[in-house]
Design a protein around this nucleic acid. Structure first.
Length: 798
RNA sequence: GCGGAUAUGGCGAAACUGGUAGACGCGCAGCACUAAGGAUGCUGUGGAUAAAAUCCUUGGGGGUUCGAAUCCCCCUAUCCGCACCA
């Protein structure tokens, strides 16, 4: 065995060297072949090295890249590193080295593993988001967005983890706690940069029709964007106008109270003006909700709380009714107006609240059960001009009525909010802006890009949550590019999502120092033909990068509306125990270890054989054993070939294999593709015809490229297998001479028989009757159903 | 709570538009070759029966159909999203 693995390693190194020498993975880019851009989400370097999960996704991507290459495309399969951000910084802190040094080491280490896996990556296109030349263009793009009015600063709550001393986005929270240390998170308010992604919300929705994404991905995006339509309605509270947003203006006659968020400005105003008679109680409630964590506030399983505002009544503009107003923390201050009109009869949350506080409930839609909330549609009642209408008609009637009288207007809203773009972290792109008392926020001149972080030995965040860059006073204090006066640099850095929003274009022109990517390269390669990644990126990364691309498009910097033509998603590679791979569980592995143990070909093939591409699969030593046996058998067959002409059935098997493999790879069904090859060799006993064998070797090449190259060379071929054209099949040759026809009686299988493929229906029926005679005895055949090439079914009556 | 997905042998899984359920692989059993094998090859392997014949079998229950793993309805379990968005 030790000899075997040494032989495998030598062979793999040999071919990796040959591929490198011949530069076969760098696209020709000369127009002689049609380009195909195969993209896999790039890794972020961390101390763990390439893991089992990487092995799965990049092997899958590589099979596709190699498949397309053999199909005659000029393939680009690039790889880079998402090397800014928390994972690199955390690892650097852990081992006590500077992130810039750590990233260099990790890139080398990762690249070595990638080569050892035999992935057909174009190393010439490699980029890392932390490269100064890369940061330059990320910052340049930010400046373009800033100039276009897409970047602005506002007060934003930030989640602050006191233990990790870092800010966290809501997405980085798990159950309301820090996803790294699982400690309690505090909320702090800070002026932070935003990108106006909501301006693109409608287009991000609409343009989904142009892209080939799985339904699930589209659904996730649609939900994330969260479009709703309805109306703003003005309720008067004394002299003050309190606007509420509702998707159900048709239920306005059923409004029996309003509620306002504890942080709402109007509430503070009423308190200041002394209008609230139970001010102490209300103040107390506001204080209590402020003390609650975001997670507790939004925990739907908890009972709703609130306090009625004494002395405050709101007037329903449709009915003139005076209704009570509550402060309640289930109303979110940052959505719509931070106020709601409540219709307990037809909204479950309002129902619960009304029941708890003994508020009146007025049904305005018929169809519900007594003493139960009714959220369905029905004829409107108790609703004045809307009586008798259904939901859809009543909604437009209500809006029209309110609009004519000036207290309502139609409104579309999105749940998605603008992209919080500030991080208080050292290892990110500094936001390239300078603040000048006279000129305001001014971009750093483009000639000064990249604006790098100053080298800091102590780059960890501080306890106050300020960006570490704020401590580099020499760096912070600068002059205004506009007026030359004293100015201060922005000390926040960009989120990790920034660099990953446009990396697919830098791969196309990685060393260009005039542009982030030449127009010529974009025209050739964009949009990305096939982008594979994880489901965890269905919303954030995929939406951010779609937005980024569209913004660049509007500014005239890119040539396509969408960055990715087709998206596929993969499942996760789990440990043999079915649990997520982790150090603590001891069920994971690193790529370099696995390659040392079993070699790249076996690793690649095994990991893709475990199950369907888009579901989670478990690593299995058993599957590995099966694959190793299979590969060994294929290799040994090379010594046992015949040049005798193939029998008709053998020829059919060859065509069938090509047909199956082509179809399965096209759909990334790697597990059944591997089965097809196993079945194929099982179908040959004794010597295998040379042609059949060569086809098999070609089909296996994307999975086990080293072994198959070796065999190919041994078979006497001078050209490398990488560029051999993918074999084609003749549909006419797929037809068997004989077919198996199943005979069933009343749908139950009774017998089967072989017959020539050209048999007529009459012949089939006769034969079927003969074969199933025993079952048909004494019965009347009511009906005969013939499914071509498959079965004959007799419906009988006894 | 809402939304989605999944449920098939001892295990991982196949089964295209309803048409031989369990391909392929693991495991297991037997045989062969061996001094020996955790190597290799061959054979068998959903369950019930000693076997043929037969019957049962795709989480559970109903239905549609000549025929259902597949379509429809109702449950149950697991996993994954979203989480009071008015």
């Amino acid at each position: 065995m030790a000899d075997d693995i040494k032989k495998i390693h030598d062979r793999e190194t040999k071919w990796q060297q040959r591929w490198k020498d011949a530069g076969v993975f760098t696209p020709k880019n000369d127009g002689s072949k049609k380009p195909f851009y195969m993209l896999a989400e790039f890794p972020f370097p961390s101390g763990k090295g390439l893991t089992g999960g990487h092995m799965l996704i990049y092997s899958g991507g590589d099979v596709m890249a190699r498949f397309r290459r053999m199909q005659g495309y000029d393939v680009l399969y690039p790889m880079g590193f998402d090397s800014l951000g928390i994972s690199a910084e955390a690892f650097a802190t852990k081992i006590g080295k500077h992130p810039s040094v750590v990233v260099k080491d990790l890139v080398q280490k990762f690249t070595k593993s990638m080569i050892e896996m035999g992935w057909s990556i174009d190393l010439k296109s490699q980029v890392a988001t932390s490269d100064p030349e890369y940061i330059k263009w990320t910052q340049w793009m930010f400046i373009q967005f800033f100039k276009a009015g897409l970047a602005y600063k506002s007060m934003l709550p930030m989640n602050w983890c006191p233990h990790c001393r870092t800010t966290l986005t809501n997405e980085e929270l798990e159950d309301g706690k820090c996803n790294r240390c699982h400690g309690q998170v505090e909320i702090r308010e800070k002026m932070q940069w935003n990108l106006a992604i909501t301006k693109y919300a409608q287009r991000l929705l609409d343009d989904l029709k142009f892209v080939d994404y799985p339904e699930r991905v589209k659904r996730d995006q649609i939900n994330w964007i969260g479009k709703s339509t309805g109306a703003d309605v003005d309720f008067m509270v004394g002299e003050d106008k309190m606007t509420v947003y509702t998707t159900r203006p048709d239920t306005i006659f059923g409004v029996t109270f309003c509620a306002i968020a504890p942080e709402h400005k109007l509430l503070a105003k009423w308190l200041d003006e002394g209008k609230i008679t139970n001010a102490d109680e209300v103040r107390n409630y506001i204080k209590e909700s402020a003390a609650k964590s975001e997670f507790d506030r939004t925990d739907v399983t908890k009972e709703k709380t609130g306090v009625k505002l004494g002395g405050i009544m709101a007037k329903n503009p449709y009915t003139g009714d005076e209704i009570p107003v509550f402060v309640a923390d289930y109303v979110l201050v940052n959505y719509a107006h931070g106020t709601i009109m409540a219709v307990p009869a037809h909204d479950e949350r309002d129902w619960d609240f009304a029941k708890k506080f003994g508020i009146k409930i007025i049904p305005v839609i018929s169809g519900g059960e007594p003493d139960k909330v009714w959220e369905g549609d029905g004829e409107h009642i108790n609703s004045g001009f809307m009586d008798g209408m259904n939901k859809v008609d009543a909604i437009s009637a209500a809006i029209k009525y309110g609009e004519e009288r000036g207290f309502a207007c139609p409104k579309t809203r999105f749940r998605m909010s603008d992209w919080g773009f500030s991080r208080q972290m050292y290892w990110g792109e500094p936001i390239p802006l300078v603040y000048c008392e006279k000129c305001g926020w001014v971009p750093v001149p483009e000639s000064e890009l990249p604006l790098m972080q100053p080298y800091m030995e102590e780059y960890q965040p501080t306890e106050d949550g300020e960006s570490p860059l704020a401590r580099a006073t020499d760096w912070v204090n600068t002059t205004c590019p506009c007026c030359g006066g004293a100015a201060r640099r922005e000390t926040d850095t960009m989120p990790q999502w920034a660099g990953s929003s446009w990396y697919y274009m830098r791969y196309l022109d990685p060393r260009n120092d005039k542009e982030f990517c030449s127009r010529e390269q974009m025209e050739k390669w964009m949009p990305v033909d096939h982008y594979n990644g994880g489901n965890e990126h269905n919303t954030r990364h995929l939406i951010y990068s779609r937005f980024w691309h569209k913004a660049l498009y509007d500014l005239g910097f890119v040539n396509t509306v969408e960055p990715y033509k087709k998206r596929t998603t993969n499942g996760l590679l789990m440990g043999a125990d079915g649990k997520k791979m982790s150090k603590s569980a001891g069920n994971g592995f690193q790529v370099d270890e696995k390659v040392a143990e079993i070699g790249a070909d076996a690793a690649r093939t095994t990991v893709l054989s475990l199950g369907p591409w888009d579901t989670n699969v478990n690593w299995s030593e058993g599957a590995l054993a099966g694959v190793q046996r299979f590969l060994k058998r294929v290799e040994n067959m090379a010594d046992n070939l015949t040049d005798e002409p193939m029998a008709a059935e053998q020829e059919r098997l060859v065509h069938q294999l090509i047909a199956d493999m082509t179809e399965r790879l096209e759909n990334m069904r790697f597990n059944t593709a591997i089965s097809a090859m196993m079945e194929f060799i099982n179908a040959f006993s004794g010597k295998m015809p040379r042609h059949a064998y060569e086809v098999l070797v070609q089909m296996l090449n994307p999975f086990a490229p080293h072994m198959t190259e070796e065999i190919w060379e041994k078979l006497g071929h001078k050209e490398m297998l990488v560029f051999q054209p993918w074999p084609t099949y003749d549909a006419a040759k797929l037809v068997k001479a004989d077919m198996t026809i199943v005979v069933s009686v009343n749908g139950k299988r009774a017998a089967d028989f072989q017959i020539g493929v050209n048999a007529t229906n009459e012949e089939l029926t006769e034969m079927a009757k003969a074969v199933a005679a025993r079952k048909l005895e004494g019965a009347e055949i009511v009906k005969t159903i013939i499914v071509p090439n498959k079965l004959v079914n007799f419906v009988i009556k006894k």
